[in-house]
Nucleic acid binder design. Structure first.
Lengths: 341, 341
DNA sequence: GTGAAAGCGCTAACAG
DNA sequence: CTGTTAGCGCTTTCAC
């Protein structure tokens, strides 16, 4: 059996409560006794049992982090930052993957509820109602979603999408495609709205294709549909889809950005590794992870329910350029033909 | 306050031990009582407190998963598979990141020890001694490392490296480079040995460059050094480095595979997304994650300490091809000149 | 089949 | 400053 507080008490000739205090309220114990206790504890290899402590204090010093898909490269930097940040504050983190399934998501929150001091919900696919329901069982901080009254950290993809579309418009593109993401994604809606509004305001056309799974294969599979629209530029829900599209276009000998420009969102590591390097909207995922942890841990102290909006940046690389040179006033059909050829 | 076993007992008119039994040993309780208890529990929203249960049973139903770097794309598929598999067996998983630091690694094991039933150590950077030491505090399963007497799951990179080198030799390459990984990596040693032995046996030359951090920037930074060796083919410690090298070579107008062939290891998602697509050794990371979880959970039952060796597969894509065409018997210097030009 | 009681490892009043 | 006592939520003997 592992060494307990009792063993330390016996070995150092004090009562167990003194040992307890040595660890949980050191200032309440005589420096001499303290160092003696600490010494024997060290020697015996004693480590407080957090679970037992949690039982009485009500604080587990654990947090939960629920994401849609660990293997989606968008999440790991966020997970890493959150975990490192939490550990620095002496918290351990449970990580769980919902596989984009809202039911699994809800189950997970409930299963974890008793073992954690709070949960970070990353890009949740549940309904607002469900989230508010669960919030009564356990403190929640939501990432990449805005729900009134709920603490949240969002990366301002709306603004990112606007920058991206403006960039495309500045290059002369008049017909864009938005390759939309999965159903139930709050982010997806925001991007779509922002992109649509920006294009419309400039008198340009924006065709929405989707929904799609947020993976590269979906981007690749959409290539034909994209070409069929006759658009000369594409904004994708995320980099994965953008990269899939990029390669599928090149495999069809469509030049990027010569004939079609492509913009992604997220700035995952791979977007710098592909050629042409992907123009994309950089999301501060690591900062978001840290901010969310801070928010969750503060929630206990005061009852604050702030909402943080993190700035996103358009990173212009080599997958965007001027639209194909066409006679002014060409019809959509002509553009399509031109692009396809 | 949350609803406890006591609330359920009161509400259903039975003693708390009956409620307890209803959840932990249902067969010991009258079916009628059981369903009544279950009903009120359901209605009150009761969920057993695992921490309290763990205190007495000694089983937390949690496991720890410690990896070198969550953001390294090699790990997320493994983490995902392990987490999903564990959850299916009703286990939650703590994920932690050591940032490639053996000290952090050891601390983490000790910090997690009391809260878990066991820990999965993924590509540990600690010494064998340290690991064996820690093993006495908590059940351990090691992934990607072989230590006698310790349960382990390894992906057979040695065999993978042999296949890769043979593939290169078959294409006619006579001088190879191994771009080695981080110090302290067991995998790195295995690859190096296997690659060296295979090359030597065929009378070919293998130059080892390194150590390197296992990131794409390190691969890119090694481009000059690689060219300076005059080798016509490179095996890299992992795909990230291989991809970095790939791009750096192309940026210098060195054709891949025309002038230099490049092989990676891992088969991360990005290796299929870059052009040319990367020839690489596919590691069954997801299978490894699941196997390790199974091993850890069985360890409690019997005292088995098996070691599983998972097969790796060479995936031939487009970054490898015949070496540059040269007059037979060209000197190394000539080859270097040719390749550089 | 169910209740009573003890106790897992620890903290939190309360005395002294 | 330190010891005493009660008890967090739950399981597990042991009687009945």
């Amino acid at each position: 059996m592992a060494v307990t507080i009792r063993d330390v008490a016996r070995a150092s000739g004090v009562h167990i409560s003194t040992v307890s205090r040595t660890f949980s309220a050191p200032h309440l114990v005589n420096p001499e006794t303290r160092s003696r206790v600490l010494a024997t504890a060290e020697q015996l290899g004693y480590r407080p049992n957090r679970a037992a402590r949690a039982l009485i204090t009500g604080r587990t010093h654990n947090i939960g982090l629920i994401v849609a898909d660990i293997a989606n490269p968008f999440f790991p930097p966020l997970i890493k930052a959150a975990e490192t940040h939490a550990r620095r504050r002496d918290y351990h983190v449970f990580v769980a993957d919902t596989d984009e399934d809202p039911i699994v998501e809800a189950d997970l929150v409930q299963a974890l509820a008793k073992q954690v001091d709070g949960i970070l919900l990353c890009s949740p696919r549940m309904s607002d109602d469900q989230i508010e329901q669960l919030r009564r069982e356990v403190p929640l901080v939501v990432i990449n979603r805005m729900i009134t009254g709920l603490p949240a950290v969002v990366m301002d993809v709306g603004q990112g999408a606007r920058s991206a579309v403006r960039h495309l418009l500045d290059l002369g593109h008049r017909h864009l495609v938005y390759l939309s993401g999965p159903r139930g994604s709050w982010t997806n809606q925001k991007i779509r709205q922002a992109a649509g509004a920006t294009a419309r305001a400039a008198g340009a056309e924006l065709t929405v294709l989707g929904p799609h799974q947020p993976v590269s294969a979906a981007g690749a599979a959409a290539a034909e549909a994209v070409l069929a629209t006759g658009a000369t530029a594409v904004l994708a829900y995320n980099d994965l889809m953008a990269i899939g599209l990029l390669q599928a276009l090149q495999d069809r000998d469509i030049a990027v950005p010569g004939q079609v420009s492509v913009v992604g969102i997220d700035d995952i590591a791979a977007s710098e590794l592909v050629r042409p390097q992907l123009t994309t909207v950089a999301n501060p995922t690591a900062a978001a992870g840290r901010a969310a942890v801070d928010m969750l841990l503060q929630q206990g102290d005061d009852g604050s329910t702030g909402q943080i909006n993190l700035h996103t940046d358009l990173v212009i690389r080599n997958s965007t350029g001027p639209g194909p040179f066409l006679p002014a006033g060409a019809t959509t059909a002509e553009v399509a033909a031109y692009v396809k050829e």
